[in-house]
Nucleic acid binder design. Structure first.
Length: 187
DNA sequence: CTTTCGATGATCT
DNA sequence: GATCATCGAAAGG
């Protein structure tokens, strides 16, 4: 399965399918263990009310990044999905760090590796992503997105940190992973 | 352990 | 003026 093939599916297929893939930026990164789908016609999506200056990348080519500033402080990154005339994407919420640990520790300023990439804001800081990467093509250097040898087992839960469409189970987490963010209590 | 709250700025109403 | 796809420090049990 190539990235281009995966991106032909629905936003939810892309989200579930991306779990287990390895994301690297300039050789630094890890395995994707937690994502959230933001579909077309999704009240919680930044693209719900149409294209704006901020969300323009969500309406651009699939396989590119949509990076936005969160709460005025953090950066969050999405993989843009193909939805003609509409915007959709998959929010990267957590990685299992596998490459360039020292580089990520230095960027994050933490000693506990569990806090390196376990959250959308932490992940972008560890990988050095910012608004400058908004719209960037994930299939080109310095980015790399590689599939796992075998597909991951994925669980669905409600999304985190939103106030609309809160009941939709559109958060996709690798089963048994100890690396996801920890904002929601156990069901 | 859990819950609360401040930071900080763009976007939306 | 309110909200926000967050994080981390502080306060409370």
């Amino acid at each position: 399965m190539t990235l281009a093939e995966l991106l032909r599916g629905s936003v939810h297929e892309v989200a579930a399918g991306l779990v287990g893939w390895t994301l690297l930026v300039d050789g630094v990164g890890g395995r994707i263990v937690e994502v959230e789908a933001y579909a077309e016609d999704d009240p919680a999506s930044h693209a719900y009310r149409g294209a704006t200056l901020r969300n323009a990348s969500m309406f651009g080519p699939p396989g590119h990044l949509y990076v936005y500033r969160s709460y005025g402080i953090h950066w969050c990154a999405n993989v843009v999905c193909e939805r003609p005339g509409r915007g959709a994407g998959v929010l990267l919420r957590a990685l299992e760090p596998t490459h360039g640990l020292e580089r990520m520790r230095a960027r994050r300023g933490v000693v506990d590796d569990r806090l390196l990439c376990s959250g959308p804001g932490r992940l972008t800081q560890a990988l050095g992503l910012s608004g400058a990467d908004d719209g960037a093509d994930l299939s080109r250097s310095p980015f790399a997105l590689r599939p796992p040898p075998t597909p991951s087992v994925v669980e669905r839960t409600p999304r985190i940190g939103i106030s609309r469409a809160v009941e939709q189970p559109w958060r996709y987490v690798e089963a048994g992973s100890s690396w996801p963010s920890r904002r929601r209590r156990a069901a």
